[in-house]
């Protein structure tokens, strides 16, 4: 429990001390292992040459985002508009899972940190779609880079 508490304070300290990105048009490319209904995610590929682990996000100055990735899928979302390194988003689109494909909802939480021309990005994104008596619920935790202009 002490480690969890220390980790929590450490992350909070980084978020508070980080410079905020200017919320305008931008894009993010991030990479991370997938979980698509086969259990939790495996470690990231080394070297990260698996195309399926990549995700591309285009954000607009109106706080909209367009997300393209193999898992959890392809989405349109609305981001929080707070001037903070941390963002959340909610939206919908095509949910892609190893057990099927469906139309559903998406939510995410992420952070753009240490911003100069490029920010370090870390994001957790999950989706949910009904499919033949169950719920497809893929997710991915990814890291990458964002840039805004």
């Amino acid at each position: 429990m002490r480690i969890v508490t220390l980790l929590y304070f450490w992350v909070t300290l980084i978020l508070l001390s980080s410079s905020s990105p200017s919320y305008s048009t931008g894009m993010t490319l991030n990479v991370g292992p997938l979980s698509g209904g086969q259990g939790g995610s495996n470690p990231l590929s080394i070297p990260p040459l698996n195309f399926a682990e990549y995700q591309f996000i285009y954000t607009t100055s109106q706080n909209s985002e367009f997300v393209v990735g193999v898992i959890p899928g392809i989405f349109y979302g609305i981001r929080s508009s707070e001037k903070s390194p941390v963002y959340v988003s909610v939206g919908g689109g095509l949910v892609i899972d190893l057990n099927g494909v469906g139309v559903g909802i998406m939510s995410s939480v992420g952070a753009n940190l240490f911003c100069a021309k490029v920010c370090f990005n870390m994001e957790y994104r999950q989706a949910l779609a009904p499919s033949s008596g169950t719920l497809l619920s893929p997710y991915a935790l990814r890291i990458g880079a964002s840039t805004f202009w």
């Binding site: 991370g32 259990g39 939790g40 470690p43 080394i46 719920l135 997710y139 935790l141 990814r142």
Partner: peptide, 13 residues
């Protein structure tokens, strides 16, 4: 595993 972003998850609806 955590360093290479490997995770487990419990989702509750």
């Amino acid at each position: 595993g955590g360093l290479f972003l490997a995770t487990g998850r419990k989702q509750i609806v």
